[in-house]
Structure formats: C-alpha cells, structure tokens
Design a binder for these strands. Structure first.
Length: 286
DNA sequence: ATGGTTGGTAGCCAA
C-alpha cells in the first residue's frame, strides 16, 4: 500500500514512458568537433561507440565538398552539411533519411556565416522529429561588432523558434550556444564576468528561449553544478576540471514529453587529439 | 597571474 500524499503536496505522476523496450528510441546528440578534418578519427570512433540516431555537429571548418561524407555514410548515416571555408560550418547526420533540410537562419539576407541547418526526419512509428544544428556566435570581445552580431543572431533565433513552436512538433534546437546560462554552469564564474558567453544580455536571450517553452534538457533532468561540456585547451583547464556548460539541447514541449535520458559523454575529452567540447545527448521515445 | 593551446589558412585569426 502506498503512502497517502501529504496535505498540500502535489502527487507527481510520471509522464515519461516507462516501457522503454516497447518504444522506438531516438538518441540525438550535439557536438562541436572543432574541425572535421582534424577530428575525423575521433568522430568515427565516437559514432561507433555511442551509436546516435541523429548528430548535430558544429565548427566543421570545412566546405561542403571537402566534408568526409563517404567515411560517415559507411557507418550508416545520411549526411547534410552547411559548410564554409576555414571557420564555422554545421552538419546533420541521421540514420534515417531526411524528409526536408534547410540551411541558414532566416532574418538577415546579408549574413554569410554558416551557423544553422535544420532537418526533418520521420520515424517508423509515424512520428516526426525536427532537429537543428546551430553554432551561435561567440561574441567576444564585447566592445566590438562581434557582440551585437551575437545578440542580433539570438533575436533572429528567438523569432524563428517562436514560429516553429506553432507546428507543435518534437523539435530539438541543438548546438554550441556560446552561452553559460547560470553561475553554476562554470567552475569559476567570476572569471567569465565581462565575457560575451556570460553577459547578462546573452543569458537573458537564452532565458527567453526557455520562456517560449523550450526546456534545457540537461537542466531539466538535473539541477546540480559542476556539469560542463567545454574545457579550454589552455592552462590545463581539463586537468583542473575548469569547464563551462555551453552546449545545449533545447527541447520543444512535444520533445520534452518524449525525453527519457540525458548524457554528457565526457570521456571523449580525454581521447588523443580531442575537441575542446564533448557530445551532449538526449534519448527520446517515439 | 590577462598567461597559454589548437585548427585552418596563409604568411595571423578565431576560439
């Protein structure tokens, strides 16, 4: 016999599917790989080990023609890229074929930086998932045009996201947001004061996405501090666990309802020739 | 402690 709920408390009913074995599981990951050419060996190793269904990559630093699609397709993935010479560049990998792909964040026809790609994927059970790989501008130093560019990009993202929410679909906005949402998302928050990643304007813009109805998958499942996704190459940041949490999976309400588990695959940071970011994953049930 | 490290490109910039 179960305990009666105490007066004034709310009995919480699990809305998550409990019978995982009866569901189609969809593992979706985001990873800033800091150069696909330099990271190909690690990427292939990680794909085999982690076996994600959908991967949102950032900073591929490659043009579309030079993206190593053959090697990735050999592991069973469909590949869509939005590349650029030298900097930026995003990609989507999916075990299921793409129904639709869109490149570039709308709202500024003069913006030539490759930081956004959207894909729509159908599941066997008749469902659909919409996934975005985004690489939000860094914005440093804040006294240059880079910071207003970051904020303008975030405003465009908010407008786009509000429109997409009206579709009422499972939607995952995955990527390197270059935003530390809260002090607990940095080992040494005081060191980030004055940095574009921790500026009040950047954090407010991130919070506005949450206010629209998106859930930060990591924060939604754990409120603990000391959870990071990036460790600088410099000054032994990894060895000292001097990290920050800037890679996020933002879930629409329909995606949040399907959320089972979240994982940060931190061990990848200790591999040979690592990216400075690690994969962040969510398992959704369909 | 305003340092130091990596990737891509080209003879430094971005992060």
């Amino acid at each position: 016999m179960s305990e009666p709920a105490a007066r004034g408390t709310i009995r919480v009913v699990a809305i998550r599917p409990r019978t995982e074995e009866l569901q189609t599981l969809m593992k979706i990951a985001t990873w800033n790989i800091n150069g696909v050419k330099a990271r190909l060996e690690n990427l292939l190793l990680w794909l085999k080990e982690s076996n994600p269904d959908i991967v949102c990559l950032q900073e591929i630093k490659s043009v579309d023609e030079q993206f190593p699609r053959i090697e990735i397709e050999a592991l069973g993935y469909h590949v869509e890229t939005h590349g650029q010479k030298g900097f930026n560049g995003v990609a989507l990998l999916s075990k299921r074929r793409f129904d639709e792909v869109n490149r570039g964040l709308p709202g500024d026809g003069s913006d030539e930086q490759a930081r956004f790609i959207e894909g729509v994927i159908s599941t066997e059970s008749g469902g659909v998932v919409r996934a975005v790989s985004l690489y939000l501008p860094n914005g440093n130093p804040i006294d240059t045009q880079k910071f207003p560019y970051k904020l303008a990009w975030m405003a465009r993202l908010e407008t786009w996201a509000a429109e997409r929410l009206m579709l009422e679909e499972p939607l995952v906005l995955a990527g390197d947001y270059n935003v530390i949402p809260e002090p607990k998302d940095a080992k040494t928050p005081e060191a980030w004061v004055g940095d574009a990643l921790f500026q009040p304007e950047s954090r407010r813009a991130f919070r506005r996405l949450e206010n629209l109805g998106f859930q930060d998958a990591v924060r939604a499942t754990s409120d603990e501090s000391g959870v990071y996704t990036f460790w600088d190459y410099q000054a032994g940041a990894w060895q000292k666990n001097n990290g920050i949490r800037i890679d996020h999976l933002m879930l629409s309400p329909e995606a949040t309802n399907r959320l089972l588990t979240v994982s940060i695959e931190k061990h990848v940071r200790s591999w040979e020739k690592p990216s400075d970011h690690v994969p962040v994953c969510a398992q959704l049930a369909f």
